[in-house]
Write a protein that binds this DNA or RNA. Structure first.
Length: 387
RNA sequence: GGCGGGGUCGCCAAGUGGUAAGGCCGAGCUCUGCAAAAGCUCUAUCGCGGGUUCGAUUCCCGCCCCCGCCUCCA
């Protein structure tokens, strides 16, 4: 209350962009805001165009609605037959001044509770409807026709239907060539919702000691059209799988050298197999299967000593082709100096074969939340995941 | 009720008309000051009942169960 809209939304935007970085998501070229004047103007323009062709009408409450009877394809995307819709009880007919229940708002007349959030329009003060915002911004930036439009399945109806209706009535062109609808995110077997309180924020998970790439891995493992049940044990298995990839990469690195040389075992080009799996409607699980097959095969070759330095270099280069997509490389973790000095002290104890002190120091390090393991390349630290 | 998406090893998850990828966990072995880690190896007959077929987890029919949407919060 009393907080300006822009001020209120700023912190959420900031958190959103932080999250993108944490999850290693490539940034989009544009992040349009529906409140920008150029888009508000475009929305108004579109609504005027619809009004001119008698598809939009202004109702008594001052709001402008889309007359869905003028767009026969409305409901086609979601396979809904509008005549057979079951009244869900959620609509209170008397509350609206619409001609038909299904008509959706293009422009909403200002009401008391909108406060200072309003724009002037040919229909008076008000604000745009949700659907027109997307049509206006999308067509402004991408033109009248989109190759791919993504969104959650839950938005298929009515939102995507409305977008199609508005856009096509204005531009006269097919709005979207391909729709990619992704399934819901579930948490611990239930739909994630505020009322159930069964949600984790990215910050919660980071605070529990999980890293961005572990969360990324966990989220990536399921096909986009299938619901993903997010669990902490899923994160644990992501962590284990990533450590295995890390170990493989560092093993290849220490072996690599010289001129890249193709290996006999992956003459079938593992990276190609990975990528062509993704070409099949983003079959990430199939692609990951290829990655791990490849990992095992080259590990076996290294065990047998049949992988040459040049082949190791080549394998790393091939891996980069898919890591470009996966972005699974290890992150630099910041080790507190107090922990670091304990590690150094322990190394001295080990050099003196003082195993008792060494073990004691490892416990001390563990008490500070770090897991230490001795590898051929020296001690390695991992942040312990909490519960 | 309508529409859509699912039910595959303890958990996660691919896939195909000819007898089931992969990951995690577990077990065994190797390595190792110990502990780990890491590497290798091993582990399913695909919700239920019919049908089609030489052969079905994969096709058809019926049923059961789970999830989502069914209109103005964006």
């Amino acid at each position: 209350m009393g907080v300006r809209l822009a001020e209120f939304t700023a912190k959420f935007k900031e958190a959103f962009f932080e999250d993108l970085t944490t999850l290693r998501l490539r940034k989009a070229q544009h992040y349009p805001a529906a409140t920008e004047p150029r888009y508000i103007n475009r929305m108004i323009e579109m609504i005027r165009s619809l009004e001119a062709s008698d598809i939009a009408y202004k109702a008594e409450d001052g709001s402008v609605y889309f007359r869905i009877s003028r767009f026969p394809d409305y409901g086609k995307l979601a396979h809904l037959n509008l005549e057979e819709l079951r009244p869900s009880g959620r609509i209170n007919n008397d509350e609206y001044e619409k001609e038909a229940v299904g008509d959706f708002a293009l422009w909403k007349a200002w009401t008391e509770e909108d406060g200072d959030v309003y724009w002037d329009s040919p229909w008076g003060r008000g604000r745009p409807g949700w659907h027109i915002e997307c049509s206006a911004m999308a067509t402004a930036l991408l033109g009248p026709q989109l190759d791919i439009h993504c969104g959650g399945v839950d938005n298929m109806f009515p939102h995507h239907e409305a977008e199609i209706a508005q856009s096509e009535c204005v531009t006269g062109k097919q709005f979207v060539r391909h729709w990619l609808h992704c399934a819901h995110l579930m948490v611990d077997g239930q739909k994630m919702s505020k009322s159930l309180g069964n949600f984790y924020t990215l910050r919660d998970l980071l605070a529990r000691g999980y890293s961005g790439r572990e969360i990324r891995f966990s989220l990536i493992t399921v096909h986009y059209r299938l619901p993903l049940n997010f669990t902490l044990s899923g994160l644990d298995s992501a962590r284990a799988a990533l450590m295995r990839i890390d170990a493989w990469v560092s093993r290849l690195r220490s072996l690599s050298g010289g001129t890249p040389h193709e290996t006999a075992i992956e003459a079938t080009t593992s990276a190609d197999r990975f990528l062509s799996a993704l070409d099949e409607d983003l079959n990430i699980s199939g692609a990951m299967g290829h990655l791990f097959d490849w990992l095992r095969e080259s590990n076996r070759a290294m065990d047998l000593g049949t992988l040459s330095p040049g082949q190791a270099t080549h394998t790393l280069e091939e891996f980069q082709r898919i890591n470009h997509i996966l972005a699974f490389e290890e992150e630099k973790i910041r080790i507190p100096s107090e922990v670091q000095s304990l590690v150094e002290e322990r190394q001295r104890a080990r050099a003196n074969k003082n195993w008792a002190l060494s073990d004691e120091l490892r416990d001390a390090i563990a008490a500070k939340g770090w897991l230490l393991k001795d590898t051929k390349l020296g001690p390695e630290l991992t942040m312990a995941a909490g519960r």
